[in-house]
């Protein structure tokens, strides 16, 4: 049996952390893109688009991320198009993230006071001018803290991709444990690495929230 020093373990975990970060970024960028489209579909005047988006959001918020991963990974294989763990994890996390971001952003847009729409309208602005100059700038400020806060959930969510065989931080920990039988050391390190990724984001979200609060009181 090969001997693993603590440094060997940490080095391997750090290398695997790369993939956790990459997967998080894919999920976040993909989720934000799809989420943005969904947000505007939800706010459109078309009943069908509204229904579709609220069903979409309810579906992805109302089922465990793990089931979504399984369905995409095994479902694709069952339909005769097996896909890689990479692709399955990226797609599942993107869809999951988009559903939550859509809901967060819709809330932020609706949180802008109705009077702002009225004021813009009596000044002669149309829907797009109002969105561009009045509503979006305010909603954007509101949305930054919860969006950054949610990115922490995305990072932790990537851990589930380990179950379909995607080698990221958690999977690397499991594999190292199988080789070394030092679960306490290894999973402590894994947890610390997740914490090192998430904690700064949480702090940043809190800082942004405070800034927003102060700005409101200015």
């Amino acid at each position: 049996m090969i001997e693993f020093s603590l440094w060997d373990i940490l080095r391997n975990l750090l290398l695997a952390t790369r993939w956790t970060i990459v997967l998080s970024l894919i999920a976040f960028v993909g989720g934000a893109t799809v989420g943005l489209v969904l947000t505007f579909m939800r706010l459109s005047s078309s009943r069908i688009l509204q229904r579709f988006t609220s069903l979409y959001v309810d579906l992805f918020q109302g089922t465990p991320l793990l089931m979504q991963l399984f369905l995409i990974f095994f479902g694709a294989a069952a339909l005769g198009h097996p896909i890689s763990a990479w692709l399955a994890a990226s797609v599942a996390l993107t869809l999951f993230t988009s559903a939550f971001l859509c809901d967060i952003w819709r809330g932020c847009l609706e949180a802008v006071a109705k009077g702002q729409w009225h004021a813009a309208r009596v000044l002669g602005m149309n829907y797009f001018q109002t969105m561009r100059h009045v509503i979006l700038p305010q909603a954007l400020r509101l949305s930054v803290p919860p969006t950054v806060g949610f990115s922490v959930q995305v990072i932790k969510g990537t851990a589930l991709a380990s179950i379909i065989g995607f080698v990221e931080l958690t999977k690397a920990g499991t594999m190292l444990n199988n080789a070394t039988f030092e679960p306490f050391t290894i999973f402590t390190l894994v947890a610390l690495l997740y914490f090192a990724l998430c904690y700064p984001l949480s702090c940043y979200a809190r800082h942004l929230e405070k800034k927003l609060y102060d700005a409101g009181l200015r």
Partner: peptide, 10 residues
């Protein structure tokens, strides 16, 4: 002009 001003706060 509205009761609640409705200025653009940003």
């Amino acid at each position: 002009v509205f009761q609640s001003f409705n200025l653009f706060p940003h």
